[in-house]
């Protein structure tokens, strides 16, 4: 299938930001894509006083949009509070990438879900109740 990705997608795919792992992360989350079997893993470092995400890293097994979405999503939540990060939607990620082909929208869902899972892991580690996660298609 031929795909014409935006320049931004190609940029984040060719030079992904924040790739890697964080040792002793404050929150770790993994999401899998039931559609095509892709996996994304997110690591968070959260400042205990300000609740600001000071560092974030990811690893992704998936297509170019999955990698670009991971890269963009980590950029968007870095320096934000955990509350702000929770409100990041997949469509905001896609928009920041100047759009994704319709068939590739689900790849951005992977990023949203991985972040939610990591934030819930952070909440659990800090004695807070987990927030129920919505699963949605695109």
């Amino acid at each position: 299938m031929a795909l014409d990705y935006s320049k931004k997608v190609m940029d984040h795919f060719m030079n992904p930001r924040n790739v890697g792992e964080i040792e002793n992360a404050d929150g770790v989350g993994e999401a899998g894509n039931p559609k095509c079997g892709d996996i994304m893993k997110i690591y968070l470092k959260v400042n205990p006083d300000t609740k600001i995400i000071e560092d974030v890293k990811f690893k992704t097994f998936g297509c170019a949009s999955a990698i670009a979405s991971s890269s963009m999503a980590t950029e968007l939540i870095k320096g934000r509070t955990v509350e702000e990060a929770w409100n990041l939607t997949n469509s905001a990620v896609a928009e920041a990438l100047d759009g994704l082909p319709p068939i590739k929208m689900h790849c951005s869902v992977l990023a949203e879900e991985a972040i939610h899972t990591a934030l819930n892991d952070y909440r659990k580690k800090n004695g807070m109740a987990e927030i129920p996660m919505e699963h949605h298609e695109d």
Partner: peptide, 8 residues
């Protein structure tokens, strides 16, 4: 592979 959790 270096950025893949599956490879890890």
């Amino acid at each position: 592979r270096a950025m893949s959790p599956l490879w890890e």
